[in-house]
Simulated scan of single mutants.
Amino acid sequence: MKKYIFGILFLGILVALLINSRTPFFQQDGGGWSVGYGMSQVYPKKINPKENRIYSIEKLKAQNDSTVFLADPFFVKEKDTFYLFFEHKKVKANGDVGLLTSVDGKNYQYKGTVLTQKFHLSYPQVFKYKNCFYMVPESKQANAVLLYKAQHFPYDWKICDTLVKNVRLKDPSIYVSDTLNVMMASDDKLNMYVYQADSLFGKWKLHKKPIALMGTEARAGGRFFADKKGLILPIQNCTNGYGYGLSLYRFYFKNGSYTTKRIAPFFLKANKEIKEFDAGMHQLDVQKLDANHYYYVYDGNRLNSNTKRINIFGPLKWNYIDLKNWILN
Rank of each mutant, 00 (worst) to 15 (best):
Ile235Met: 06
Phe127Ser: 00
Ala270Asn: 13
Thr216Cys: 09
Asp227Phe: 12
Leu60Ser: 02
Lys130Leu: 07
Leu18Ile: 15
Gln236Met: 13
Gln125Cys: 03
Asn20Thr: 13
Ser247Phe: 07
Lys209Pro: 00
Ile263Gly: 01
Val297Gly: 07
Asp161Trp: 04
Asp322Leu: 01
Phe86Pro: 01
Ile8Trp: 04
Asn240Ile: 00
Glu51Gln: 14
Cys160Glu: 10
Leu289Gln: 09
Asn304Gln: 15
Phe82Ala: 04
Leu231Asp: 04
Leu99Met: 11
Ser257Leu: 05
Lys203Pro: 03
Thr101Arg: 11
Asn237Lys: 06
Lys3Pro: 04
Asn20Lys: 06
Ile57Asn: 15
Gly245Leu: 02
Gln41Lys: 14
Leu147Ile: 06
Leu246Ser: 05
Ala291Ser: 15
Ile159Cys: 02
Thr259Leu: 14
Thr259Tyr: 05
Gly256Ser: 14
Ala71His: 07
Phe6Asp: 02
Trp204Glu: 04
Asp188Val: 05
Asp290Met: 04
Thr259Met: 08
His207Ser: 10
Lys229Cys: 07
Asn306Trp: 10
Gly222Pro: 12
Ala270Lys: 10
Ser102Phe: 13
Glu51Asp: 15
Lys140Pro: 00
Gly256Met: 07
Thr23Phe: 01
Ala270Phe: 03
Gln196Trp: 06
Val194Leu: 12
Asp188Leu: 02
Ile54Pro: 06
Leu206Ile: 11
Asn48Val: 14
Tyr123Met: 03
His282Glu: 03
Phe127Asn: 01
Asn48Ile: 14
Ala220Leu: 00
Asn143Leu: 00
Leu268Ile: 12
Ile5His: 05
Gly32Leu: 06
Pro154Ser: 06
Ile8Gly: 14
Ser257Met: 00
Gln63Glu: 15
Glu78Ile: 11
Ser21Cys: 10
Gly112Tyr: 02
Ala71Glu: 03
Ser199Cys: 04
Ile211Arg: 01
Leu233Lys: 07
Lys111Met: 13
Thr116Tyr: 10
Asn306Gly: 15
Phe201His: 04
Tyr249Val: 08
Phe277Lys: 04
Tyr244Pro: 05
Lys2Trp: 06
Leu60Tyr: 00
Pro24Cys: 11
Glu58Ala: 08
Asn48Phe: 09
Val164Gln: 06
Lys59Ala: 06
Lys275Val: 15
Pro44Arg: 10
Ala226Thr: 03
Lys254Met: 04
Asn181Glu: 05
Tyr195Ser: 00
Phe85Met: 11
